[in-house]
Amino acid sequence: MSKTNLPPSYEESRQQSCDSQQLGNYPFPSYGYPVQTGHYTPPGQTGLWHGPGYPPASMPTMMPSYIGQGMFSSNLRDTDATSSTSVWESTSVRHAFIRKVYLILAAQLFITVSIIAVFAFVEPVRLFVVQNPAFYYASFPIYLATYISLVCCEGPRRRHPWNLILLFIFTLALSFMTGTISSYYDTKAVFLALGITAVVCVIVTLFSFQTKVDFTSCTGLLCVLSVVLLVTGIITSIVLSFQYVPWLHMLYGACGAVVFTLFLAYHTQLLMGKRANSISPEEYVYGALSLYVDIVEIFTFLLHVTGGVD
């Protein structure tokens, strides 16, 4: 056997190992790579091949933090941009919805205040509705039918322009009924109730938009208060039909004004979104209807407190 066929010496092996390191022949995982010569890693370090002279290596148990940042930072930026765009779009839609609701509400209140002013200042009209209460009772079925159609039926409430037509008829009916009720009270009491209602509505609206208290999560409490107010109203009506008690009349009016003030805060926060409960931006008719009924009820109950029957 010639000397060239002898195995390399220890120094030659070390030199070859150093040369392979300088050339970059590092161990590669076996997944998808060609098989390389070397020694197989013992169990517990499976999947790695090691060249001659390499100590056993092991895979890291966790992904390095810089790898995670490099892989996911762009995705996070895209996600943030998408979510911020979505939030911006939803916020703009919600603001447009709120503006539409309050524009409709302003038109409704203008009609109602105008009719109340006619009933309060025009004496022949006032005497006519007082002497002919049948017109008041005739307007009640119109009010009830349009109210049920708008609140309970999604089709008429969302179909344009029928939703606005029904809302206009409803506004006229409720305005006529409110004007008829105002005819039984002194003119000063009517305008005092109007002034207090305006102040209360502005304060409640600003408070509802600024406060962290979520009135939309108090649905059960408001339902209980509504039942209590209904029962109190029935008892008050029975008592007053036999004998007029001024303090009972005023107490019932104060309780009703407080309950519907809470309802006004509740329905205001339903428009805002980002609460326990909210309404869809498509429900602008329902939003305006709810606020309008609350404001009219507050005014009607305040009449019991501020005015005396002529």
Rank of each mutant, 00 (worst) to 15 (best):
P52A: 14
V227R: 02
Y10C: 13
V190W: 00
F191A: 07
V125H: 00
S226H: 00
G308V: 09
S226R: 00
F121G: 01
I196P: 02
A96V: 02
R94Q: 14
V231P: 01
W247R: 05
G44E: 11
L23V: 11
P55T: 14
T112E: 05
T300F: 00
G24S: 09
T146G: 06
V213P: 00
S149Q: 09
C152R: 13
S17L: 12
P133L: 15
W88C: 08
H267G: 07
L164F: 03
W49Q: 08
T268K: 01
F128M: 10
N25I: 13
V101S: 03
Q269S: 06
D186L: 08
A173I: 10
V259L: 04
H95W: 07
K188Q: 14
M62Q: 13
M63Q: 07
V309M: 12
V239H: 02
I98W: 02
I142F: 15
A265K: 01
F176D: 01
Y137P: 02
A265D: 02
G253R: 01
R157K: 14
F170P: 03
L192D: 10
F207W: 14
A254M: 14
H267V: 05
Y244L: 11
Y33A: 10
T4F: 11
I115R: 05
V228E: 05
V129G: 02
C18A: 15
L302E: 03
S278M: 06
S9K: 06
Q45W: 07
L240Y: 00
M1S: 14
F301K: 01
S90A: 15
L229F: 03
C218V: 05
D78W: 01
A81F: 06
Q108D: 09
Y136L: 12
H95Y: 09
M71A: 11
M71D: 10
Y10P: 02
D78I: 11
W162S: 12
V130C: 07
Q21H: 11
V118D: 04
F207H: 14
Y26Q: 08
Q21F: 10
G38D: 11
Y286L: 15
A57H: 08
M62P: 02
C152W: 08
H160K: 09
P124C: 11
T205A: 06
P124R: 06
R94C: 12
Y147D: 01
V190S: 02
G44T: 13
L166D: 01
I203K: 03
